[in-house]
Amino acid sequence: MRRFQLKIWFVIFFFISAGIYPQQVDIPVKIQYPLALKILSFERALKKRIGKKLTIGIAYQEKFRGSRNIAEELQTQIANNFKIKIHGVPVTSVLINLDKTSIENALSSTDINILYVTPLRVINIQNIQKIARQKNILTLTGVSDYVEDGIMVGIGLKGGKPNIIINLKEAKTIGADFSSKLLKFSTIIDI
């Protein structure tokens, strides 16, 4: 009986925990991705940063199922929409499992133009942002709260509609040149 109760509590905890993490990503990945591409198209300085292709690094934690799922899902989206080009170049993706490697190593070893940050646990976001800035890499996330920690662009939900959150200070620091047309429709965080 006691074992049965434990099992019940485990199941409840599992569902609760599984429910909490996905809530950090307000918008499904299949919507986030085209939206992210559109946002990037308004970044006029991006063209100077990229070569023949645009590589998106997906930072995730393998052991964190919510993070892993989003990472895999995003990777699938990028792979499926390989024909879509931005600033005339195709888009590829690289998974960065922060359970196995540090963000610093990952960013140093690979030619990443943009870093997408999935929901993460026990990892300092500001640290990720700091290293990305050093590497002159633009940062994106589907977790709205990460923008306040320094991530440049976040895609959240506001009033039932997608909401673009831009950390303008970070953008200007890193040399991103977002069109005011985008900024006009975005929530600007100037910290």
Binding site: R44, L168, D177, F178, S179, S180, K181, L183, K184
Partner: peptide, 14 residues
């Protein structure tokens, strides 16, 4: 309207 954000964000290009 188009110029408002551009002016606000000093977006000369826009």
């Amino acid at each position: 309207f188009n110029l408002s954000s551009a002016l606000y964000f000093d977006d000369l290009e826009t």
